[in-house]
Design a protein around this nucleic acid. Structure first.
Lengths: 147, 147
DNA sequence: CTCGGTGCAAATGCTTTGCAATGTC
DNA sequence: GACATTGCAAAGCATTTGCACCGAG
C-alpha cells in the first residue's frame, strides 16, 4: 500500500477545497486507516489511535473520516447494525459483501458482470453512479453446518 | 394487496413461534404497513397510526416491525442516514435502489440478471442467501441538470 | 493575525429497556 | 391465573454540535 500516494490525494483535496487545512491529526488518522485490514468502525479506529500514542478526539475521527470519504480514500457502509463501518478504498478494487446473519461474518466477493448491470440500469434511469453496494444477507457455510 | 393473506402469515408465525400472542396492536400495525406505498420509517408509521385513532406506543411499533421482518412481511433497509427504513415485502417482487446523494430520492429498479449473479456467488462461497440489497449511490437526472 | 480545526462535554435522535399494568391463552 | 405484551419514560449508543483554545497559512 502506497502511503505517500494516499497522503498526496488528501493533500490535494485539502488544497483544492480552498479553506481546508493540513493538520497533523488528519494525516495521523489517514495513516491509521491505511494500516487497517478489512472493515473497521469509529470506535476501533479511535482505540487504535490513542493506544498508539496519537492524541485525537472522537469528533475529529468522525470529521476526518468524512473528509477521507469525500476524496475516495475510504468507503462507508451500513450493514444491519446501528454502527457505520468503513474500509480503506485506496488501492482496493470494488467488491461486495455476503453478510452472515448468524455469526456476523462478512465475506467479500467481486463480480465483473455486476458492473455491467450497474451501467445498464444507470443508463436506463439517467442516473450518475458514484458507488455501488451489493449486500447478500444469509447464512454462511460454518453456521449452516452448526445448525 | 391481499390483507387477509398477510394476516394469515402473521398468525401462522405467531402460532409456530410457540409463546407469541396475537394482540390487536400487532394486527393494527400490520394493516397500517400494508397501506403504505414505497418506503416508510418508524416515525412516519407511528404518526399514521395515532392519527388514524390506533393507540400504540412507539416501542410496540419497533417490536412488531421486528416480528414482521421475521416472517418476511416487511424488508428493512439502511441507506446513508441514521434512520432505518422499511417497506412491505408481501406481494412485492424483489427490487433494488438508486439513491440520489443530492436530493435523497430513491428510485427502484429490478433486474433478473442480478439473481443469477447472486446464485453464482452463493454457490461459490457455499452461502445460503436470504435477502439481497443492491444500492447504487449517485446523482439523479434532476440533480444533474440543476447543478 | 485570521479563521479553520481540535478537544471536550453536552446535546441530539433513533432505538432499546425496565417495570408495573394489561389482556391473551 | 400465568406470563407474554403493552405503554411510558428513562436509558443507551452512535454521531453531532457548541464553544473556548490552539495553530496552520
Amino acid at each position: 500500500m502506497d502511503t505517500q500516494a494516499a497522503r498526496d490525494i488528501l493533500t490535494h483535496h485539502l488544497k483544492s477545497g480552498g479553506k481546508l487545512r493540513a493538520t497533523p491529526e488528519r494525516f495521523a488518522i489517514l495513516d491509521a486507516v491505511l494500516q487497517t485490514q478489512g472493515h473497521f468502525d469509529v470506535e476501533g479506529l479511535y482505540y487504535r489511535l490513542i493506544t498508539t500514542g496519537v492524541k485525537v478526539s472522537k469528533a475529529t475521527v468522525y470529521n476526518t473520516l468524512e473528509l477521507l470519504l469525500e476524496c475516495g480514500l475510504v468507503a462507508k457502509y451500513r450493514f444491519a447494525e446501528n454502527t457505520s463501518r468503513y474500509e480503506k478504498a485506496f488501492g482496493r478494487p470494488q467488491h461486495h459483501h455476503l453478510i452472515c446473519l448468524s455469526c456476523g461474518d462478512i465475506i467479500e466477493f467481486m463480480n465483473e458482470k455486476l458492473e455491467r448491470i450497474q451501467d445498464d440500469v444507470c443508463a436506463e434511469k439517467d442516473f450518475f453512479p458514484q458507488s455501488t453496494t451489493l449486500q447478500i444477507f444469509g447464512t454462511c457455510s460454518k453456521c449452516t453446518k452448526k445448525g
